[in-house]
């Protein structure tokens, strides 16, 4: 019926709505093939860094608590921080990774806040600010990492 109406009345009304619903949309779900522009990487890294920080919250709170706890807890804190596997200070390296995650999330978040306020939404400026986010978060990670190592 709808098809019939459509053919009589031209492309409008019910038939158009139906074709819009039934139309097969192309799916490009091969993650390895998708080439993201830099702002896309900033966006997905914002999510990845957020997940990493969330999952490590218990570790971070425990270390924070131990650093302010009794003498015993402080000893435990120091031993944990110094813990290494095959000469690699794995806890400190994890914290360095989380520092990067925090700083990336911080910088990318400020960029998103500015985009919300329509600052730098034009493509060249949005690309430039994505580079700034990547660069500043890495530089700050190195600087704060060296200062607090």
């Amino acid at each position: 019926m709808a098809r019939c109406l459509g053919s009589v009345n031209g492309v409008k009304g019910v038939s158009m709505a139906e074709t819009a619903v039934k139309k097969e949309r192309p799916k490009h779900l091969n993650l390895a093939q998708i080439r993201l522009p830099l702002p896309g990487y900033v966006s997905i890294l914002h999510r990845v860094s957020g997940v990493g920080l969330f999952l490590c919250l218990p570790v971070l709170i425990a270390l924070f608590g131990a650093s302010l706890g009794s003498a015993e807890e402080l000893e435990c804190y120091r031993a944990t921080m110094a813990y290494s596997v095959l000469g690699l200070p794995v806890v400190k390296l994890l914290l360095l990774g989380l520092l990067w995650a925090y700083l990336h999330h911080f910088c990318a978040g400020i960029r998103f806040l500015l985009l919300d306020m329509h600052v730098g939404v034009e493509l060249p400026r949005a690309r430039a600010s994505a580079w700034v986010v990547m660069g500043v978060s890495l530089v700050l990670t190195v600087v704060l990492g060296v200062l607090t190592w």
Partner: peptide, 17 residues
């Protein structure tokens, strides 16, 4: 539940000082 628990945990750390 995890996040509410974390909030209590942080409060005890801070106000133990």
């Amino acid at each position: 539940l995890a996040l509410v628990g974390y909030a209590g945990w942080v409060a005890t750390i801070l106000w133990r000082l």
